[in-house]
Structure formats: structure tokens, C-alpha cells
Design a binder for these strands. Structure first.
Lengths: 349, 349
DNA sequence: TACATGTGTGAAAACGGTTCCACAAAGCGT
DNA sequence: ACGCTTTGTGGAACCGTTTTCACACATGTA
């Protein structure tokens, strides 16, 4: 059960360790004949180089850390696939960590991964605290953040124009005749939430729809929070003919709450989400939403990261903005006829 | 930017390298005074031990590899969370790899992870080929397989009684009065598929319902295949009043196909799935399914794996069977009324 | 007093690779 | 025939740890 080392290969092929190493890395001169002998020995012994030892000398582990807040939100597996595929193509392995949106977990993971000497990080921050990211930058460890940007840190990023797309989503509802549009936000301190909220506000303002703070709630991007905040809105007695949620999971939670309340989507209340997870197209009614290219964003982040790893540490932080688009499905219905009168005094089922 | 090593700490604290190591690992004797000095040096220099070097000498990387066929199927993220949490609690890191149900990818990942000297594997095989698993066993690398077992290999496993629960699912439909029950299977060569198919057949047989091979189709556990196979069934002109799919993603695909065909679920065709992914409870109508404790299965697999890693390599392969249960939701409706006329006069309410 | 035992420390040998350096032989231009 | 470059190879230092061993000094015991 003794593991085979480079030494065994060298002995078996009757050459020096250096030569075996040269054959493996195709570095330096090796005669065709010797090379063949070495390869035969490698095959014969079924030798697998120890990457740990290799990394120790070279200082590179060919591993990147992927830190995500919630892998059960389908948006992130899509990102993860993109990261993984792009990494693999370039000979890198990915270590995926799930922070549960907990900054402490996040710190713990980063420490663990740094001790494992990962070559770089792809990161979706779980909170507004920039210290973790700053620590990486200070230590000259390449990082690319994705989806959410970090205030107070100059770092490579892959993003979309959240404000613009939230604006489009809200405008879509306004265009359908809605005026009483509720908004369920993500955690207030995330840039994603702030920007989407800003887009919502701007659309209302531009359309001359008065802003009603009672129609704005804060969730945590997860299904149950969307469900709970929607129930609160319905119970509040406020008139609501449409709701825009800052992501699909909350939008779906909201849809469910509406249906449980005895109202119909989209006839009584229209719903728009954000992300375009697979689920959005599968539910009934299917969800109108902003489609983010999650897979592509993951792949892009890896490309940027590898450029950093491979090359110039200096240079400004770069930001890539990805394209999104509004995907119109069933959850908004057609143009609203008699808005304003329909939901007066609808009670609990 | 020079990384601090144990040597720097030793110099700074004016002790030997050995002493620093002893302080870090709490091994051997160190005086209180020296220990304090060392800790102060560690803090002062912000020293982080290099796990690669550590692993190289100890031979243990405190990392486990998790190999899954499809992370976009929500069943697997749930498993992954269980694996990750249980691993973290025990000080292990998880490397998650996605094989895309491709045996070549699977082999490639296992090779890469072995070279990184992971301490063990948690595995959901993507095909019937046992050679990868056998290779690990032969090399004395701990493995636990999950969800699917491997024919021809004696290996620790975390499973459920697929046949029994497929039987329950089918019986549930039969109990509601259904006789023309279609079955959409997973890939034919997976044990999971075989067992669930066997359960379906057995239920039919026990209930005296004649088996119609034209009602059985094979998918690949993914949404589009469920959708396509259901369309084929509908187009075939066969009478179908219910369909049992070997997992939820296919069941949801089938539901969608039924609705697109202009029929209603459950009024025209009842649907049962298998897995109980979150999505199952969210869609409309919600999906009756067999609930598997995915998170728990992941955690359990890690426990078994760590026992192997820590201890007796010998001993028989152990199999843990997890509990599942039938979760009745809306997709099957209530008892079928008019099957007397419709289904050739079987039974009586 | 002498001797085992317990405590505290440092030197040096692994671990399994990469890489720098030295050296030898061969080919080549003058 | 001479030096110069190109090939081909082996020796040894090094990467950052852990761990074995040796040794020094107290302390308790016979």
C-alpha cells in the first residue's frame, strides 16, 4: 500500500529524480529514449505525482476557492457550474464553500482556504463588511467578486446593472397599468439590494407614480422571507396590484402567499422577479423576471481571476458588466384595465 | 509580500522551529512563558501555517472530495450542504465536483483529487461502471457512496429502500383508483432506476393491475427528459390516468407536458415524483412525492467516511438505510370517482 | 548519594516534489 | 586543433512543516 513516489519511478527507470521531473513537466532536455523509459516506468508503477509536494515548491496549488452565500438558491449552482467548467478547462480545481450568508462562516472559510494556499478566490460576499476582501487584497491574493460589489474596496468584479434592470422590471409593471407596486428587497446592506431598490424608486419617479414607503419590505433573498413579507403586505390592508421582488426565490414565495390568500396571479396581483432561475419558467404561472447570465458570469469571473493569477498584479481593478434582459412570462398578465378598484377590501380566505 | 513561515515566527520569538510547532499543535512540553512568547510572535507576524506543507509531512490533507452528477438538480445541493456542514464541524474542507453524469469527467476528477491527496471521497456514481470505485478501494482510499449503490463493489453506502418507496408511491396511485399508470424511469443502468422500476412493477402485480410495457419510458433524471417522455406518452394515444416519475425533476417536466397538452393535473392525470426537492412543494399543483432526507444523507455519509479515515480500514462494508416517506400533496387529487366506466370496472369505492 | 522520571528545548531527518548548478559529450564554425 | 554552443544527465539545495532523537535540568524516591 506504499504510495509510489518519484523516487520509485526514477529507480525503476534507472535515471535520476531530476530526469523524471523533467519528463513530467516537459522542462529541459531529455532524450527521446530516456523519456520513453520513464513513461514506461510511470505506467508500470501507476505513479501519480503528489500535488501537495508540487505546490509546496512551486508555490501554486492550481486551486481556486469559490465562496457563495447559499447554494440552495438555484442562481448559485448555475454560477458554480460556470466557475467549475472554466476552471477545469484551465487545469484548476474549485473548492466550493457555502457561507449561509454568515460573515463569520465567510471569514472562517477564507482563513481555511488561505491556509490551503489557494491561488485565488471567486467571491459573492454575504455582507457589507469589506474587511475580508481587503485582507485578501492586502495579501496580494487575487480575488474576483461576482454579483455583489464591495464598497470601500477596489477589486475586480463581474456585475450587472442592477439599478437599470430593476428599473426595467418596475417599468414593465407600470407599463401594464400598475400603480400600487410593492417591492420586496434583499438585505438592506447589500449593494445588490440598494441598487435594485434605487431602480424601483427611479422608475416610479420617472413615471410620476407616487412612492409609498409602506409598500416596501425587506427580506433575505430566500423563499420563506418572500412568503412572509407578502403576507404582511396583504394583511396590512394596503392596496397592492403588483409586486416586484429583488430575486426569484422571494418572488416565488410571494406568489405562493398571494395564492394562499385566495387571490390570483396575475389577475389580482402581478409578480416580477429577478435572476431567472430555472424554476421561474417551470412554476405556474411562470414568472416574469430579469434574466442574469449566471453561468457566464461564473466563467467570466474565472477568466479574470486567471489573468490576475498569471500576470500583472498591478493595474486597476477591472469591472465587467454582463448583459441581462427582461423575460416576460405569465405572472404579469396583460395590460391592466381597471386598476385601482379591483382589490378594495379583499379579506382573508 | 514575503509570506511568513514558521521560521520567521521562531526567529521573532527567539525559540527553535520545533518549539513553535509544538505550540501550534499542543504536542509535547512547552513552558507557559515560552508559549506566550510564541503566540505573541504569531499574532505580531500574522502567521498562518501552510497546510500544504503540513499535509505533506502528516500525509493527511483534511479535505474530502464530493463527486456529484448534477448540481443543478436541487436534490444534490441539499446533499452537498449536509456533507459540507458535517465536514466543517470536524475540521474538514470539501471539494465539490460536478461530473455532469459523465463517467469520463468522473474519472478525471477522481484522478485530480487523488493527486491532491484528499483523505476520502463521498460519491454519487454517474454510471454503472464500478472501476473508479474499485480503484479507490484497491488503493485503500476511504469512500462512501450515496444515493446509488455500485454493483460489484463492496463499499460503504448511504441509501434508501428505493424499491419499497417506489412501491408505496405506485400503491398510492392504485389506492386512488388509478389503473393506467405510466412510469418514467431514470437511466436504465443505475441501481436507483432499477430498484424504483422494480417497486413499480411489484405494486402493479400485488394489486392485480396488468403491466403495460408501453407505459414505461426512460429519461435521464432531468427536467427536459421528463417533459419529452410525457409528450411521447400522450401522443401515443395510450390511456394514461396517472404517471409516476423516478425523480421530481422529471415529474415536474411531465406535469408541464400534461398541462401544455391541455389536460389538468390532477383531474385528468395524477403525478407522483421522487426526492421531495424544495421545488416540489412550491409548484402549482404541488407535487406528491417520496421524501428523501438529502441533507441528512450527506451528513451521515461524512460521519461514516470519517470513521473510515480515522480508524479501522478493515471490516466489512457498511450500509446505512435512511428513512423516506410519502408526502401527499395536490398533484394526485382525491380518490378517483368514475373509474368504473373508464378503467374497465375494477374495484368499487 | 544515585537514579529514574518528568519537563523543556533544539538539531536534524523526513515528506515528495522542482530547480539551480555542474559536468560531460557531441556538433560546429574557424 | 581550439573554443562555443547545444544536448543530456545527475547531485543537491530548497519549499514549510512534523517528528524523532538527544540532551539538559529539576524533582522525587530509594
Amino acid at each position: 500500500m506504499k504510495t509510489v513516489t518519484i523516487k520509485d519511478v526514477a529507480r525503476h527507470a534507472k535515471v535520476s529524480i531530476s530526469t523524471v521531473s523533467r519528463v513530467l513537466n516537459e522542462s529541459g532536455y531529455v532524450s527521446e529514449q530516456t523519456s520513453q523509459r520513464v513513461w514506461r516506468a510511470i505506467e508500470a508503477l501507476n505513479y501519480k505525482p503528489n500535488q501537495l509536494a508540487r505546490s509546496l515548491t512551486t508555490g501554486r496549488s492550481r486551486t481556486i476557492g469559490l465562496v457563495l452565500p447559499d447554494i440552495t438558491n438555484p442562481f448559485f449552482p448555475a454560477v458554480a457550474r460556470g466557475v467549475e467548467d472554466a476552471a477545469n478547462v484551465n487545469g484548476y480545481t474549485v473548492i466550493l464553500c457555502n457561507t449561509d450568508a454568515d460573515p463569520e462562516q465567510e471569514k472562517a472559510y477564507v482563513t481555511a482556504l488561505r491556509e490551503k494556499r489557494v491561488d485565488g478566490f471567486v467571491f459573492t460576499v454575504s455582507g457589507p463588511d469589506a474587511s475580508t476582501i481587503l485582507g485578501l487584497i492586502e495579501a496580494d491574493i487575487p480575488v474576483v467578486v461576482i454579483d455583489r460589489c464591495v464598497e470601500g474596496a477596489s477589486v475586480d468584479s463581474v456585475l450587472i446593472y442592477n439599478e437599470q434592470w430593476a428599473y426595467e422590471a418596475t417599468m414593465h409593471l407600470i407599463g401594464l397599468g400598475h400603480r400600487a407596486i410593492a417591492y420586496i428587497n434583499g438585505p438592506d446592506d447589500l449593494t445588490t439590494s440598494k441598487e435594485r431598490y434605487a431602480g424601483y424608486r427611479k422608475a416610479l419617479a420617472d413615471a410620476g407614480v407616487s412612492f409609498n414607503p409602506a409598500l416596501v419590505r425587506t427580506g433575505d433573498f430566500r423563499y420563506p422571507s418572500g412568503h412572509a413579507r407578502m403576507r404582511e403586505l396583504l394583511a396590512s390592508g394596503q392596496e397592492v396590484t403588483a409586486v416586484f421582488a429583488a430575486n426569484d426565490m422571494m418572488a416565488i414565495g410571494a406568489m405562493r402567499a398571494i395564492q394562499e390568500w385566495g387571490l390570483r396571479v396575475p389577475e389580482d396581483i402581478a409578480v416580477v422577479g429577478f435572476d431567472d432561475i430555472l424554476l421561474a419558467s417551470l412554476i405556474k404561472p411562470s414568472l416574469t423576471t430579469i434574466s442574469q447570465p449566471a453561468y457566464h458570469m461564473g466563467a467570466l469571473a474565472v477568466e479574470m481571476l486567471l489573468e490576475r493569477i498569471g500576470g500583472a498584479q498591478g493595474g486597476e481593478a477591472r469591472t465587467k458588466i454582463c448583459h441581462a434582459r427582461l423575460v416576460v412570462r405569465e405572472s404579469c398578465g396583460g395590460r391592466r384595465e381597471e386598476f385601482g378598484t379591483r382589490n378594495r377590501g379583499v379579506g382573508q380566505p
